[in-house]
């Protein structure tokens, strides 16, 4: 059996709706990925621990609250501590263009802002998954 790409889709922080995350989850499912969906209001600790237990290839975070500059580095730090160096971290949601270079420099593989076709996300994952 060929390797099946597993993606954890999570919503860290306090913002209260996950329509965007669900649309992405559904698109990834239709692309043949196994999507582990953990729901709203997750802590970075919980996200990385779930990702470890599920042995995912990708962690995809959806953030609308403006907390991205705090949460992404925290998740990266925990991933490093758990030696999850072969896991891709990507993000999406309401993230100002000006913040994206900083997030990428910190280790976020890619950031997808509103209006991105889901096919771009799928292609990115297929091309970059380790």
């Amino acid at each position: 059996m060929e390797k099946r790409i597993r993606v954890l889709v999570a919503k860290p922080g306090l913002d209260g709706h996950d329509r965007g995350a669900k649309v992405v989850a559904r698109a990834l499912r239709d692309a043949g990925f196994e999507v582990i969906y953990t729901g709203l209001r997750q802590t970075p600790e919980l996200i990385t621990e779930a990702a470890l237990q599920e042995d995912v290839n990708v962690i995809a975070l959806s953030l609308l609250s403006g907390a991205h500059n705090t949460i992404f580095p925290k998740v990266l730090e925990l991933m490093k501590a758990k030696k999850m160096d072969d896991v891709l971290l990507i993000g999406g949601g309401v993230i100002p263009d000006a913040d994206i270079p900083g997030l990428k420099a910190a280790g976020v593989a890619e950031v997808f802002t509103p209006g991105t076709p889901t096919s771009d996300i799928i292609e990115f994952i297929k091309a970059n998954v380790k």
């Binding site: 099946r4 989850a25 559904r26 990834l28 499912r29 239709d30 692309a31 043949g32 990925f33 196994e34 999507v35 582990i36 969906y37 953990t38 729901g39 997750q42 919980l46 621990e49 779930a50 237990q53 599920e54």
Partner: peptide, 16 residues
Amino acid sequence: SGGAILGDRIRMNELT
């Protein structure tokens, strides 16, 4: 598609 949404963890987050 061969894909799946695995959503049971939503109810088990406190155990994680």
